[in-house]
Simulated scan of single mutants.
Amino acid sequence: MTTRLTVAVEPRYFRSSSIQSRFLATALRHTVRPTLSLWSHLPFDLQPPNFVDFIARALPVPEGSHIRPVSVGAAEAEWISGPGVSEASALADDHIILYLHGGAFLTCGLNTHRRLVARISAAADRPVLNLAYRQMPAVSITESINDGVEAFRWLLDQGYRADQITIAGDSAGGYMAFGIARAVIDAGWGQPEGVVAISPLLDLEAGAKRAHRNANRCDVFPLSALERFSKVAQRRERRDGVPDRPCPVDMDVEGLPPALIQIGSREILMPDAEIMANRLVAGGVPCEFQVWSRQVHVFQAASWVPEAQRAVREVAQFVQSLEGMRAVGLDDAIEA
């Protein structure tokens, strides 16, 4: 395992804490957290059907959104163009987002994240390919990442360049985003435009989380749930005979594109975000590390929370700035 770096990246703090966000944190602490704690202590593995994504089908999307289902290899996906955004095409100057939903590689999907993706699309003025990658227990995490790589390859086949594609994801989708970016570069397909990681899970091991100040402060995840998840994931990989695959916190960061990491200040996944941000900066990769005071895991999905609206705007500003970063890079290369 890679030695943990102690380089101190300078976070950007957002200190507001609205009544809505406090209500959300209290509700999750008294519902989701105890449910996950109960799951973590069951004497057997329980992985029920993805009821969460099924129920989420009834939730409305922002008015004016355009959604078009597509098939991408073994996975399902959909093009999402938020209100005011032109539907996806492959024009030479188009820039798009590949989005990977969270859910601990066990749950959630297109339905749970459609509203968040549509809001990001509208704010960034970019169409988005929202991917429903295969998940455990049907496949291992390695196969989930392979679905994401196949989706990136599919976008290239549609006429997009690698440097027109930003890879974004929340929670487990953040793991996917960095893993896909690494695989794309290693395959020689070019460098993606950027990576956006929202409340990312970036280390399957629980050791750093156990030693962190947030080990028992998170409103959503008890430490026991992360430890149980780690064991479930490792058993699934061993069952498939999957070769050792470094988690994002341990991967080679050379050549990775600029990244944005957003994390709530009390999240149990804070050490994952801190380690990744440190490693990126130490490796010469531009990284904006945002810490949002007292915000819960993937609070960006709660559109009625003021901080969520602001965070989505921050994502949009970062995504839009990537085109300018690339233009400066090209100018520097020409002058050299």
Rank of each mutant, 00 (worst) to 15 (best):
P83F: 03
R266V: 12
M270Y: 10
V296Q: 02
H113S: 13
V196W: 02
H41K: 15
D157L: 14
M270S: 11
I67T: 11
Q191N: 10
A208L: 11
D170G: 15
Q164N: 05
D203W: 05
E323W: 04
I55E: 05
D125N: 13
A197W: 01
M176K: 01
H101M: 08
L201W: 13
F23N: 03
R114A: 14
V9D: 08
F178I: 11
L260M: 06
A273N: 00
S321W: 01
C247P: 09
G207Y: 10
A311M: 02
L280G: 00
V32P: 00
G179K: 09
I67A: 09
D186Q: 15
L5E: 09
H41E: 11
Y13C: 09
E193S: 14
V220A: 12
W154M: 08
M136F: 04
L156P: 01
A233Q: 07
Y13S: 11
H95V: 12
V296K: 02
M176N: 07
A301K: 11
G148Q: 02
T31H: 01
R236D: 05
S37L: 13
A316K: 02
R210W: 06
R239A: 15
Y160C: 06
G64D: 01
P60D: 10
Q320C: 05
W292T: 07
L226R: 07
S121Q: 01
C287L: 06
G148E: 03
F44V: 14
K209Q: 12
E193P: 00
A168P: 07
L91R: 15
I275W: 03
Y13W: 15
Q20L: 11
E78T: 07
P127W: 00
H113V: 04
N216C: 12
K209G: 07
